[in-house]
Design a protein around this nucleic acid. Structure first.
Lengths: 239, 239
DNA sequence: ACCTGAACACCGTTCAAGT
DNA sequence: ACCTGAACACCGTTCAAGT
């Protein structure tokens, strides 16, 4: 009784468009996850032949680039007098998008696709903020790269793709090795094992959707921003 | 004349083993890149049927987990009296591994696979270092997560997967949009465009292999470490 | 201009069969 | 115990053909 109407999404008549394709792609990714995210399944959801998409989108990579651009279209925060507050807000907004669409994590992670649809307003926003903070020249580029890394870094880890584990083998083996960690060899790990299990990166079998890593997000972003602030301050680049 | 012997890797006789499979997988990933990295091609390199691998390795995910574990087996630095120096060394060693095997970036990025072969010595090393710095309880977990993020974050971005772009369309469109950025709309971007093009994340068509992002790495890791130091200092968690 | 439909060269994985 | 070999249910993408 759970599978009445198999999501007959397209009443035909409506013509295909690249926007409709991206929308269907986002919907599919959110509903079915990365493992079922394919050109063919997007086409199926649209009630159209797979090859029909190629009239509107050059290939899978560009489709993903546009999908990412669409999801992050509104991350840019309003201006703020305090550059540190602005950065923090940006980090938070970025994380919220990933949290709302966690399955994009692997698509952002180690891929350069995003460049295919660069959001210049976002780039300028970060650059202008860092320039205002006191960064210039090469240091501005470095600080910008540090910020972008911080932006993607935490969220993509927190909401990383969990590979299929029907029998719960991963949970079992992680629990066993953490619970059974020899205090002589791993004193800190053993002492804090209950806080760490499924809540510390590399010791998880679930991602941020089921087991939030928000405290670490606060720590990470605050530390990064504070470190950047200290850098400009120490170098005497004050306005 | 460049393709004499097509790498006839296996003289047969030598029996298959999971270690041999991982070694062949690393070799394939390094030589051919992610786009040709498949179970079938690993098998081909070993001169064996694809399905033969399944006797030694449960599936693709576990194979990748073991591959990652093998590559990072030696990242853990020697002990150092200064916890900040130790962390910096760890960051640098991690980046060096990724730089030597850049094609793993997408496999680390937004995936939780690494958990399948957690390196407890590495985990303990980071935890012990942070505990020594003054972190405890929940803050220790948060700081640990921040460090792991920093570890993976920058390197996976710097050496991110570049999708095939035979006609150089990406380079052309990025160059055009950055070079032609309206100074009225994008003042900072326009002013520093020569420093940014292909060297700022999201404005690149090459990754760190061809266009190093090391200055940003220094900035990022120094800022993160300094920020963490400030955090423990401010909270008065000194020993 | 836009979509169909067949086709190509791939995937990961299961499972029975061989030795 | 370890590998072969066929088979299944998928991929992304090309290209000719339809309308």
């Amino acid at each position: 009784m759970a599978r009445e109407k198999p999501a007959k999404r397209k009443a035909k008549s409506v013509p295909l468009s690249s926007d409709a394709i991206i929308a269907a792609a986002i919907d599919l990714l959110d509903r079915e996850g990365l493992d079922n995210f394919s050109i063919r399944n997007i086409a199926k959801a649209l009630g159209v032949y797979p090859t029909a998409l190629y009239w509107h989108v050059p290939n899978r990579h560009h489709l993903i680039a546009r999908l990412i651009a669409a999801l992050f279209a509104d991350v840019l925060p309003e201006p703020d007098p305090d550059w540190q507050v602005w950065l923090k807000t940006l980090f938070r907004r970025y994380r919220n998008v990933v949290r709302a669409h966690p399955n994009i994590s692997p698509l952002i992670g180690g891929h350069l696709v995003s460049s295919a649809s660069a959001d210049l307003k976002l780039v300028e926003g970060i650059l202008a903020t860092l320039a205002r903070a006191g960064f210039a020249g090469e240091d501005l580029v470095s600080a910008y790269n540090a910020v972008i890394t911080g932006l993607c870094g935490y969220a993509t880890q927190e909401f990383a793709h969990v590979f299929p584990d029907p029998d719960g083998d991963l949970k079992a083996s992680l629990t066993a090795s953490v619970e059974g960690a020899d205090p002589a060899l791993y004193p800190t790990l053993a002492a804090e094992r209950h806080l760490l299990l499924n809540r510390a990166l590399v010791l998880r079998w679930q991602n941020g959707t089921e087991s939030s890593l928000e405290p670490g997000f606060e720590m990470f972003t605050d530390a990064l921003i504070a470190g950047l602030a200290q850098k400009v301050h120490r170098d005497g680049n004050l306005e």
